[in-house]
Design a binder for these strands. Structure first.
Length: 275
DNA sequence: CTCCTATCCTGCGAGC
DNA sequence: TGCTCGCAGGATAGGA
């Protein structure tokens, strides 16, 4: 479900709900068998801790307290919603509510995840969790440049789509935004990464950034069930140029759009606009 | 190393 | 209407 724009919007909505500054009262584990089993440790360590900040790195949400880092990934279907004071509706229990964070103010944050691909893991603040250790560049940071993309792709034979979705190279780009950014750059997803020209690397750097920025501003993409922590859907799906549009006319040239599996996922492009 | 596939899990829509 | 099948926004282990 969530790529960088969706995760960023979850983070922003958690901030609007006033989550930073809240003090943990209790952590309730209703179901611990997520893909990586939840550890009971967090129920012992977090009470009393004040949440200092919520940050995003790649597609991870980082809840930072005085002494700990609570690392969260939404997987495909994870979401947060608020309840109690400041958080709207009270006692609604829904299927797949696996974790409830209870704060001293009465605010509760509920982690819901039908497919259970999500992650919640506690670590000491002075440690870098293994999940964050090997991540690549933040695409909206100053380090993500055309020269860097050009150099990093040299000698890579895998398709450029696989490259930009590889979180060890660039983070945050998932299956939707990979197709969208490549369309905007006029580059076929199947092109071997090492065959990009420097000029194309410039174009792709820019379109990755502009697509992600536009999608963030639109509140992300809601295809089926994505919502931010305030329950709001995104609207960027209305502006998809190619994603999930196989057989439909290209918005630029009218040609019927193509689809094919790449990097294990369905991939969409215009054979005329993209070379 | 690089690259690709299968796997984890549930829900939903398409097609019969 | 009701059933089965395939697929879904991600990450990762393991094999070639």
């Amino acid at each position: 479900m969530p790529e960088l724009p969706e995760v960023e919007n979850v983070k922003l909505s958690l901030e609007r709900l006033g989550v930073p500054g809240q003090v943990f009262e209790r952590v309730e584990l209703r179901r611990a068998d997520l893909r990586t089993p939840l550890k009971k440790e967090m129920t012992r360590r977090l009470p009393g801790q004040r949440l200092r900040a919520i940050r995003r790195r790649a597609k991870y949400i980082l809840f930072e307290t005085e002494d700990f880092l609570l690392l969260n990934h939404l997987g495909m279907t994870g979401s947060w919603r608020a309840a109690g004071p400041g958080g709207g509706a009270g006692e609604d229990r829904r299927p797949h509510d696996h974790v409830v964070l209870h704060f001293a103010s009465g605010l509760r944050l509920i982690f819901n995840d039908p497919r259970r691909f999500g992650l919640l893991e506690l670590s000491a603040k002075d440690r870098v969790p293994s999940q964050l250790a090997r991540l690549g560049l933040e695409p909206l940071s100053a380090e993500f440049t055309a020269t860097r993309l050009f150099e990093d792709t040299r000698r890579v034979k895998a398709p450029i789509k696989n490259f930009i979705m590889d979180q060890r190279r660039v983070v945050g780009v998932g299956n939707i935004y990979a197709s969208e950014a490549l369309f905007a750059a006029g580059i076929r997803p199947t092109r071997p990464a090492g065959r990009l020209t420097h000029k194309e690397a410039e174009g792709l750097t820019e379109t990755i950034q502009s697509v992600l920025r536009d999608a963030i501003a639109a509140g992300g993409s809601t295809i089926r069930d994505y919502r931010n922590s305030e329950g709001e859907a995104g609207s960027f799906q209305k502006r998809f140029a190619v994603y999930d549009r196989e057989g439909q006319p290209c918005r630029r040239c009218g040609t019927s759009l193509k689809a094919r599996i790449l990097a294990g996922r369905n991939t969409f492009w215009c054979a005329k606009c993209q070379r």
